[in-house]
Write a protein that binds this DNA or RNA. Structure first.
Lengths: 334, 334
DNA sequence: TTGTAAGCGTTATCAC
DNA sequence: GTGATAACGCTTACAA
């Protein structure tokens, strides 16, 4: 490994001069600077991150937190899409992106301990178990945090506009003649699920429609949707003419279940999802759904985190930043 | 920030003793150790990663490399699935996972420079532009590397068994009466695409069937599949009775295109994909496909990388590790 | 403009 | 067993 001392020795100057030259300080003459840069390159010098960070106390790194316990993580393409956008944005600014881990070598650490250990600049919370004790201390630590879709209180949050989306769905369904709209909600430990349910009730209420036909799915996936629909048919005597599902996967489960029960989608019952997963274009029927803007969510989250790191005014406010969504009408609604 | 000096001062011992106690050295009496641990806990001590790494030259961190240029990255759920499995495995061993970046603060770095900068222990290459110059120096640097699905020469590789998968597809189609099998290949800059094409030719050759009906898709996605199918119908006079597509997305594009051309799947033409993307179960027709085992690929890759880091015998051999695949028969084949 | 030296928080090598 | 003390590679006052 080549160090600044090696360079200094070769040139015959002080290591501090090398350091300054490498950091493009104006306290070094141009000729010296040029010489040092040339030798550094020739010798294949690369700075050492740990030494630099130890000296500067600037880590230039950002942690990504997935609570593994929920079984929605990196694999869920909504989150990997957000992460991709986030990563692209912050890496371009020179930050490195590391997954927060609960283990270091052989020791177990809490999230906060890990952040201190790494001297992290900020943290993106992607998915989260709201009941996780470790999150509280993290939140109170003063470390810059931003979260997407998690619903942590007192944390800056970037999330799809579930209210706008739900309103668009309901109003669209009504405009197409729906009289009895049901909702298959997502699991209530998810903040978005709660928001969508709340919005559902609010909007129907505004139109003086009954909003009681609601079943909570156990999870966001296909099977939960299927099961929830079956539960709905057991619990209610009526049959809805439209179903608003809290996710595309749930919606697909609902559609399959409806088919099994002998209903036609959309002729008998319209179904709407949420997410706009790529393949919903190709299912049969293709799915009417609310498109979430992953890129924008990821980018906004990055901006808000960076603003906090840079201590910009108001940056740390626990404001919820709602990203617009779009209704994509396809074949599953009549 | 609490340091070992703070602890030492409070207790009235040397910092080196604290360090030893914290590292569970047997050079410290049990009573001292207990005392130190207690005080450390009480004071909220967390070690500093940078200082430790600087002193030990052990980084306990692994880099993940996505070549962004190809537009398949984190978002592609095949890769995010592999990454998830990989991450889980190595984090459990105490490694941290960081994305390799080309930028640090304001400086641009090559991959190798970044690895040196971070003093990384090893690197997982996920997607890669084979022509990327920076990869060569990385490969030759001696840093432990493992790759999935990339086809880098001289690098330990973990990949689905494309030969086995292709054989299963072809033999299955033949067993169902197919006489004329076409292949929509993936882009030839992808190693897997090349392997699947090669396997296709080999297997058909073994059965003395013609393997000339091949079109290369521009990419792995839906639209490329659709376009490739159209190109195939322009280029060949014959109509195949079965089409083997190099990915599920391509297969779905093919199916849509076939529908547009008035063909029925599977009645007129059978279609098979590759990947087993979750939603292919719910398309219409649901897709017969080859399931790749993401978890196993990720885990195997992790094991091989760790073995290299630990300098186990033969660990660095540039062996290709083929992970078994499974044929999932659904409705798109008759 | 350049050099000296202290310090960042650990670990590791010696003495004691 | 315990304690000084020198690394680790870099940045940064402060001197020269």
């Amino acid at each position: 490994m080549v160090t600044i001392y090696d360079i200094a020795r070769k040139i015959g100057c002080a290591s501090s001069t090398v350091s300054k030259a490498l950091n493009n300080s104006k306290e070094v003459s141009d000729s010296r600077k040029a010489e040092i840069l040339a030798v550094a390159k020739e010798m294949g010098y690369v700075p050492n991150a740990n030494a630099r960070r130890l000296a500067t106390k600037q880590s230039w790194s950002i942690g990504i937190l997935f609570s593994e316990d929920l079984n929605i993580g990196l694999e869920h393409h909504f989150f990997s899409g957000i992460l991709q956008a986030f990563k692209t944005y912050v890496e371009d600014l020179g930050y490195e992106v590391t997954f927060v881990s609960k283990k270091v070598g052989t020791q177990s650490l809490t999230y906060l301990e890990w952040c201190k250990y790494k001297d992290i600049d900020g943290i993106l919370i992607v998915t989260v178990d709201v009941n996780d004790e470790n999150l509280n201390e993290l939140r109170q630590s003063g470390i810059p945090i931003v979260t997407v879709d998690s619903g942590l209180i007192n944390v800056p949050t970037v999330i799809s506009d579930n209210f706008q989306g739900t309103r668009m769905v309901v109003e669209y369904l009504m405009s197409r003649g729906a009289k009895r709209i049901a909702h298959i909600a997502g699991p209530m430990r998810s903040f978005s699920a709660m928001e969508r349910l709340e919005a559902f009730k609010t909007v129907l209420g505004q139109y003086e429609m009954d909003a009681s036909m609601v079943v909570e799915a156990y999870n966001y996936d296909f099977n939960s949707g299927r099961n929830a629909l079956m539960a709905m048919f057991r619990a209610f005597d009526e049959v809805p003419d439209a179903i608003y599902a809290a996710s595309d996967d749930i919606a697909l489960g609902v559609i399959i279940a409806l088919k099994e029960l002998g209903y036609k989608v959309p002729e008998d019952i319209s179904v709407v999802g949420f997410d706009n997963i790529e393949l919903t274009r190709y299912t049969s029927p293709s799915l009417t759904t609310v498109a979430q803007d992953k890129v924008r969510i990821g980018t906004e989250a990055a901006k808000r985190l960076i603003a906090q790191i840079n201590k910009e005014a108001d940056a740390g406010q626990a404001v919820i930043n709602r990203v617009p969504v779009e209704l994509i009408v396809r074949e599953s609604t009549k």
